[in-house]
């Protein structure tokens, strides 16, 4: 076993000359190819500038597969493509055909320093460290430790004003007892008769006069109104009393990650969130039937007021939207 012969490294293979190395005609041809490519590139640049100046920027054409395309943008892009591609191809053709292609061997140097240098470094480091006397003066060492340990706190503290404290923000919405439902978009009041069975509407709470609706409001207040046949519901007495003539209302903000739960499937009465496919069963108070959401969409109790318009009976009984640390989820 000891005399096993392994294959030996045969060394660099012999260099094979290219045609252009030996045949001046081939070399001349390669030179011309490179030159033509560089000229084409310059033409591409000229074309790009011409497209910028002469093509109207509101000109569109229909191109199969690509669809409706802006002629100027596309011409600029194609011009730029030609201009850059030909420089690239030219340079590489030049390197491959005309520049020397003999493989060269270079030795690697060892990365580690000489033992002596390393030892010297460690020695110097210790010696200089000793001069500072950090080991001999523990008081300085410890107090420096404290100072360096806390100095980073000030920039952190200075960042405090990045935003206000959340306080009770996540727990509140603009829905209160008697708030009228208004259509979004539009802002019109809604009567139960406006919704046919199977219909869906996005609604928002009517805000007090003079208050402007912000995106932050919408992100918490958005509610979906869905009308079913009353016999389709599978709810307990309390939740059934939160509906009105087959109309049921849920927060539209997903309890998983806050996307708008916008897809309603009429046949199965399922609401689907397009972000992560959490699926909620409308007939069973938006119980999660599939996907990563852990809690049902909060239901809004609705009724009609003296004018016959839909109103909220009360605000949401649980916070809407995704979970957070302070959320008390024991009651839903």
């Amino acid at each position: 076993m000891s005399s096993i012969e392994r294959f030996q490294n045969p060394g660099l293979p012999e260099h094979v000359h290219r045609k252009a190395d030996t045949d001046p005609k081939a070399a001349k041809r390669a030179e011309q190819q490179v030159a033509i490519l560089f000229l084409l590139s310059a033409l591409g640049t000229v074309g790009t500038i011409a497209a910028y100046i002469y093509i109207r920027s509101d000109l569109y054409v229909y191109i199969p597969i690509l669809g409706s395309t802006n002629v100027q943008q596309m011409s600029l892009g194609i011009g730029l493509t030609v201009a850059t591609l030909c420089i690239g191809l030219g340079a590489i053709q030049w390197a491959k055909k005309l520049m020397p292609d003999t493989e060269v061997i270079q030795e690697r140097h060892e990365l580690r320093s000489e033992d002596q240098d390393r030892a010297d470094f460690v020695e110097t480091f210790k010696e200089r460290g000793g001069e500072a006397g950090i080991a001999r003066r523990p008081l300085i060492k410890r107090t420096l430790g404290i100072a360096l340990g806390v100095v980073g706190l000030s920039p952190l503290v200075l960042l405090r004003d990045l935003g206000p404290m959340p306080k009770k923000y996540f727990e509140t919405t603009n829905w209160t007892a008697g708030t009228r439902l208004v259509l979004d978009p539009g802002g019109a009041y809604i009567k139960p008769s406006d919704l046919e069975v199977g219909a869906v509407a996005q609604v928002l709470p009517e805000l007090p006069k003079g208050t402007e609706r912000t995106l932050e409001n919408v992100g918490k207040d958005a509610v979906l109104l869905i009308r079913l046949r009353p016999e389709d519901f599978n709810l307990d007495a309390e939740r059934l009393s939160w509906t009105y003539n087959g109309i049921i209302a849920f927060s539209k903000i997903c309890t998983h990650m806050g996307c708008a739960v916008a897809l309603y499937e009429q046949q199965t009465h399922h609401l689907l969130c397009p972000c992560h496919q959490s699926t909620f069963d409308v007939t069973r108070a938006a119980k999660v039937v599939f996907g990563p959401a852990a809690r049902p969409l909060p239901q809004l109790a609705i009724s009609v007021d003296a004018g016959g318009y839909l109103v909220a009976k009360q605000g949401f009984t649980v916070p809407v939207g995704p979970s957070y640390w302070e959320r008390n989820s024991s009651n839903g």
Binding site: I92, D101, E103, E107
Partner: peptide, 30 residues
């Protein structure tokens, strides 16, 4: 063949790699 842990076999930076790498930048751009 010819390559070991102790050497590098290939082409020099100037001019071959300058031309190839520079040309390749333009191709990626295109």
């Amino acid at each position: 063949p010819g390559r070991t842990e102790k050497n590098v076999v290939g082409y020099p930076l100037m001019p071959v790699y300058m031309a190839k790498a520079g040309g390749f930048f333009f191709i990626v751009f295109s």
